[in-house]
Amino acid sequence: MERHDASITVIRPESGWLALNLTDLWRYRELVYFMTWRDIIVRYKQTLLGAGWAILRPFLTMVVFSIFFGELAKVPSEGVPYPIFTYTALLPWELFAAALSVASRSLVQNSHMITKVYFPRLILPLAAILAGVVDFLIAFVILIGMMAYYGITPTPAVWTLPLFLLLTLVTSLGVGLWLSALNVLYRDVGYVTPFLTQFWLFITPIAYGASLVPEQWRFLYALNPMVGVVNGFRWALLGIQTAAPDSQLVTSVIVSLVLLVSGLFYFRRMERLFADMV
């Protein structure tokens, strides 16, 4: 019989801003894996189309955007066919949008666990977001098909794609942590999140190219970390040079990290109240 964590746990009142206690998160890393896995399995078992949704959502959005923005409004697409131009942006966007929605609900939905057993609460929004990566990968297969169809070969910079994926996840987690913690305190967040996501869609270059934004507004525009993400995807996959990494990307990365770190601290600050409130 082994002795586990024969360490001493000291329980004492905590208030104000707390240390992040990431060692505890590390100790529970397997739970991150299991919770992610649960979220994936349950989603695919409960829905009729299962994995089909991962493809249908971005695909149908692409079709609608292509008709209205590409064909009718003639939004310029930087020399690549409009459908693939917008689909490339929709991939990280869908991941982000779904992450906000599931992460914001993650604590409230798992309240029965929070009120009964200790584990780092951070795992709940984290696992909810990571589960979305599977949808992302499935939808990515369609992109590969579209690239083959349009005869577009990825640029040598395609190796940077995982980094942009990481930036998407960091941003999602940052915003997701804020929303999930706020949702425990104020259920208004449930109403605000869809609106926030819709609003965010328009300030992100999904249906249009970032180069449409006038030069003097670029800095302000880049404060939205998803701008850096979408530009990165278009640059790495489609070779769109106006989307190449520049100071805007630096701004996006910094904002994203600020969101993550502030989200972590805010989450930790509220964490001790969760069991009493949900």
């Binding site: 586990h4 000291v10 329980i11 905590e14 798992n110 057993v117 200790y118």
Partner: peptide
């Protein structure tokens, strides 16, 4: 450790498992 105390401390030596959460999750 489901909830935090308002005052005082507790020292726990080792892992705490509880049967109050059968079926949690």
């Amino acid at each position: 450790r489901v909830t935090y105390p308002t005052e005082g401390t507790a020292q726990i030596h080792g892992r705490v498992g509880s049967l109050l959460e059968v079926g949690t999750g």
